[in-house]
Design a protein around this nucleic acid. Structure first.
Length: 685
DNA sequence: ATAGGGTTAG
């Protein structure tokens, strides 16, 4: 049950998420998605007998399928059976096996296949040899890789490329340069480009630049572009610009590369200026250039430039191209123009997962929850597309709606599709469960996180705090620190809220002070407001007032409201007057300012003053904001507002409420006061 | 050789 000023949106709560028919999916899937339980073992020999020409083809395909799924043990078992049946393993299968062994860094299996290759395959092609070489490189086994490379019967420029770029990727620049020096540079420009691409240290970059010059590989658009990008990677934008300016032939890739360089150096204005130059020089722009410049506009929040660029895109007729349309729609999302984003989205002829995640996250970020869920439903009906980004956004929407039913469905769906993003998705799930009243499930999700980061820890700490489990929240905060994870400003909101709920005034003050001294985090006004709330709730109204007036921020509505709330709970008219006066000065339309003060005067029997307040409120024609609460039962949302008697079971509900209320009587008057304040029994106006 | 998406609070 939650309480929000806006009515809950719950478009999916009583419906199922559309899940595409699994069987029909499988028919259209490519072979590598066929699950391994569809075994061809039993039928394989008969298939082979029926079609002698295709002997072994089905088996090899199955072998490839198992391998591509990473089921290497099953693949090896199947390989044994193929041997028993006398079926030859073809070249494609070998290549695939080496590729997967490399990807999975399974050196022992890779070596076995290598031995097999040598034993069974006469005169393998250069292509196969390169796949063996790549496997050794990817497994990080450079001794074997080098041995193979030196002895390789069919060595081509791709072999040089594989080993040299692998050396470079692993930081083995000495070895990379060693091989480079014995290679024919003119025949292997690609190798140079790949090596240049891997360099992220300026000294090394300069060295290779001089090698390039010495070997007369420049001027060359390809090489020089790589060099310019390399300087950008080494955070030496001057170097990039120098190479760029020295180039006589620049192509669109060169220009775009420098634009990206400016972006990475957070010089977005310069990037945009470069784009303008590109247009002036009549460079034929491609989708990469548009994509990059649109991201620049997003960063700059430059709606006008973006719209002009949109115009060019339409003129060139590429707004339906997914690689331009997606950054375009995301640009509109970042500018908060969701209608424009939606328009751009609809123009894209083949939206991909990035497109969908961009529009869905847009709706989620701007609180368009209904549209967000609607898009998600459309996606599930229209295409077999999903990714962890999309689910993360949906989890967030479920949190906002506190819709446990939908949240659990989507969670299950995400598990089936392996689409829960580490940390991002997991943290969103923690919040989703905790805000839906399932702290235990939130904890389960948190406990399953491999290495929780600041955000994940913060999510569970805030969850505990939200549920009033202050000591657990503070315990987790300690544990977070002992795990060496640094808290941030949001973490302290959670910690301070926890203190607030259990009246830990002294501890809260210590946490607040430790922010700067121990963690180097500057407290924001939100942190001070938490502290004011803590003092106020605990009845330390003088301390609270002192903090409001002397904190390093101008008090805002929330600061005074906390103080006024405390004055009401602790019946302090004097400070209450100060608080309400300031509150109403900042926001004369804030009803809480009037109501709390009215209640305070009324409680004290100061009817005249109370009437004054009420008069002022009437003069401004203010009505108390109507809050609503809701709960979902069997997928149906039951919504309640103050004094509401529309529900078919009104009588039962009110009698239960009466019962609950009388059992609360022994509590302090705050409990009742809050009920009154909500207007459930004595409507204020 | 160049491009596009997500998380924690109130």
């Amino acid at each position: 049950m939650g309480s929000l000023p806006t009515p809950p949106l719950n478009p999916l709560s009583s419906q199922e998420i559309p899940i595409k028919n699994k069987i029909s999916d499988i028919k259209t899937l490519s072979f590598n998605k066929i699950p391994s339980w569809i075994s061809l073992n039993n039928s394989s020999s008969s298939v082979a007998k029926n079609n002698q020409k295709q002997k072994g083809q089905v088996e090899n395909l199955h072998l490839v399928s198992l391998t591509k799924q990473g089921k290497l043990n099953e693949a090896f078992e199947f390989l044994k059976q193929m041997d028993i049946e006398g079926i030859t393993v073809n070249t494609q299968s070998y290549e695939c096996l080496f590729e997967t062994c490399g990807n999975m860094k399974s050196l022992s299996k890779g070596k076995k296949i290598h031995k097999r290759l040598v034993k069974f395959v006469k005169n393998p092609s250069g292509f196969v040899w390169n796949s063996v070489l790549k496997m050794y490189c990817e497994c990080g086994c450079f001794l074997d890789a080098r041995k193979l490379f030196d002895e390789m019967p069919k060595r081509n420029s791709f072999s040089w490329y594989i080993i040299i770029s692998s050396y470079a990727q692993n930081g083995l620049f000495r070895e990379a340069f060693g091989l480079l020096s014995v290679m024919d540079p003119m025949e292997n420009k690609l190798v140079y480009a790949s090596l240049i691409q891997e360099i992220s240290r300026l000294e090394l970059g300069k060295q290779i630049h001089s090698v390039v010059i010495k070997n007369r590989l420049t001027p060359d658009a390809y090489i020089d572009t790589a060099l310019a990008n390399m300087y950008a990677t080494c955070e030496c934008l001057d170097g990039s610009v120098a190479v760029f300016d020295g180039m006589s032939e620049k192509n669109v890739v060169t220009w775009t590369g420098l634009m990206v360089g400016y972006t990475q150096a957070e010089q977005h204005k310069e990037a945009l200026a470069l784009f303008v130059r590109m247009m002036e020089e009549n460079i034929q722009l491609d989708e990469y250039a548009y994509s990059t410049v649109l991201k620049v506009c997003s960063f700059l929040n430059d709606y006008d430039s973006g719209r002009q660029i949109h115009g060019c895109i339409v003129k060139y007729g590429i707004d339906s191209d997914v690689s331009v349309g997606t950054p375009l729609l995301d640009f509109y999302v970042k500018c908060g123009k969701l209608d424009d984003a939606c328009f751009a989205f609809k123009r894209i002829s083949h939206p991909n997962d990035v497109t969908w995640s961009s529009i869905i996250s847009g709706y989620s970020q701007y609180g368009k929850f209904e549209e967000c869920i609607e898009s998600f439903k459309n996606l599930r009906c229209e295409a077999d597309i999903s990714n962890p980004f999309i689910y993360t956004s949906i989890f967030k929407v479920c949190s906002a709606l506190a819709d446990l039913n939908l949240g659990m469905q989507v969670h299950a769906d995400a598990i089936k599709r392996c689409s829960i993003s580490e940390l991002y998705g997991e943290s969103a799930l923690v919040t989703m469960y905790s805000r839906s009243g399932r702290l235990g499930d939130a904890r389960n999700v948190f406990d399953s996180v491999d290495e929780p980061d600041t955000v994940a820890w913060t999510a569970i700490i805030c969850g505990c705090s939200y549920h009033g489990h202050a000591s657990e929240a503070l315990y987790l905060f300690g544990k977070m620190r002992s795990c060496g994870v640094r808290p941030n400003s949001v973490t302290f909101i959670g910690v301070l809220t926890a203190c607030s709920h259990s009246g830990l005034v002294f501890e809260a003050r210590q946490y607040l002070d430790s922010m700067r001294s121990e963690f180097g985090i500057d407290a924001t006004i939100d942190h001070y407001n938490c502290m004011i709330d803590i003092y106020s709730r605990a009845g330390n109204l003088e301390d609270a007032l002192e903090l409001v007036t002397n904190m390093p921020f101008e008090p805002n509505v929330a600061s005074w409201k906390s103080l006024l709330g405390g004055c009401w709970s602790h019946s302090n008219v004097e400070i209450g007057k100060i608080a309400s006066r300031n509150l109403l000065q900042l926001d004369p339309d804030d009803t809480a300012g009037y109501i709390l003060m009215f209640n305070l005067y009324a409680w004290k029997g100061k009817w005249e003053e109370a009437a004054q307040i009420r008069k002022k409120m009437n003069e401004r024609n203010l009505k108390k904001d109507v809050s609503c609460s809701w709960l979902t039962i069997k997928g149906k949302v039951h919504r309640f507002t103050v004094g509401d008697r529309h529900h078919p079971q009104t009588e039962e509900i009110y009698s239960k409420l009466e019962q609950l209320n009388s059992s609360c009587l022994h509590h302090n008057r705050n409990t009742l006061a809050h009920l009154n304040y909500d207007g459930s029994y004595i409507p204020f106006i």
